[in-house]
Each structure stands twice: as C-alpha cells, then as structure tokens.
C-alpha cells in the first residue's frame, strides 16, 4: 500500500448470496468504513471496472452472467470472492441449484472468508486486490513497453 500509483474501480456483483455480504460490501463504501480512501471507487459498469467483488455462490442461472461480467472487464483485472459462499459455496453447498464457489466459473485471486464477511476483512481484501492490481498493471505495462521496443527495433532493421 506504500506507493499506490493507480486508482482501480470496483464492480460488485451479487452471485447467489444471502445479501449479508452485499450489504457489508456496500457498508464498506459508505462513511464509517470508507474503503474509498484507498483510492478505489464503486462503479456499476463492468467495462470500466478493474476489481470484481463477487459475493455468493454460483448457480445455474447466474453462471453465464458472471462469466460475461468477467469477460467485459478490461485486462488486467483482479477478482475478490467475498464471503464463504463465494469461496466454497458455504452453507448452501448441498443445495440442488448451487454449483460451488465463484472459482467454478472464473479465476479468483483473493478469498475473503466470513459469514457475513466483516467490513474489516473486506477492506483487507480490497487492499490486497489494489496491491495485486498494481503489480499486474506494472507487468502489463512492461510487456507493452517490451512489445513496442521490439516493434521499433524490427522497423529499424527492416
């Protein structure tokens, strides 16, 4: 967290959670916990989002929606599974309509446990996600730079 260069935007999607974690995610973004002080901002548009906060498990209907949201986010991106349902399926794991945690359809980077996940834990997850996003963006930038350099060299040679 020492030197943040970027200000990633958050997208929140409710998988099939019981609402407890969603409300806590929202509570994190309101004054008392105020996760926005870490430079993140809540957005409703997946095309502009960098970090996906997903709560609740995956069921047969939202499977496609979650995949679509993930694909719509520009690279690099970070996924945070908030709450035990998003991590493993939780208390609903044995229900007929639950396929499992969020990682059954999309790759998850950070798991935040808890039922419902506490704001402190969610903020910790967000901070880790910001760090990871920073790292990935740096790697991404280096790759782009390298590509450009090679293209330039190729052009100079040719």
């Amino acid at each position: 967290m020492a030197n943040i260069k970027r200000s990633p935007w958050l997208l929140h999607y409710d998988g099939s959670s019981c609402n407890g974690c969603d409300i806590e995610v929202l509570a994190c973004l309101t004054p008392v916990y105020d996760a926005e002080r870490f430079g993140v901002m809540n957005t409703g548009d997946p095309m502009q989002a960098d970090i996906l906060l997903i709560t609740g498990g995956i069921n047969s209907q939202n499977e496609a929606t979650v995949k679509q949201l993930y694909d719509q986010m520009p690279r690099p991106k970070v996924v945070v599974a908030v709450g035990v349902c998003a991590c493993t399926g939780g208390v609903f794991k044995d229900c007929y309509n639950i396929l499992g945690g969020a990682d059954t359809v999309i790759p998850v980077d950070i798991y935040v446990p808890g039922c419902a996940a506490r704001p402190q834990a969610i903020i910790d997850g967000i901070v880790q996600a910001v760090d990871l996003f920073q790292k990935r963006s740096d790697e991404h930038d280096a790759l782009v730079k390298e590509k450009k350099r090679k293209a330039k060299e190729g052009a100079a040679r040719g």
């Binding site: 099939s16 019981c18 969603d22 209907q61």
Partner: peptide, 28 residues
Amino acid sequence: FIHRGLESLTDKRDFNQMCYVAERTCGI
C-alpha cells in the same frame, strides 16, 4: 438469479441445524 433451493436442505440437515440455514435466507 439467486435461487439456491435452500428448502431442499431439510433432507441433509436436522431441525436444529435448519435454524442456521433459515437465518441465511436473507442477510438483512
């Protein structure tokens, strides 16, 4: 989109455990 089918858990949980499932119908 959020249908989990928690009413079907009666097969797998006893009536004391169902209390905790019922609590998770809605977090609010």
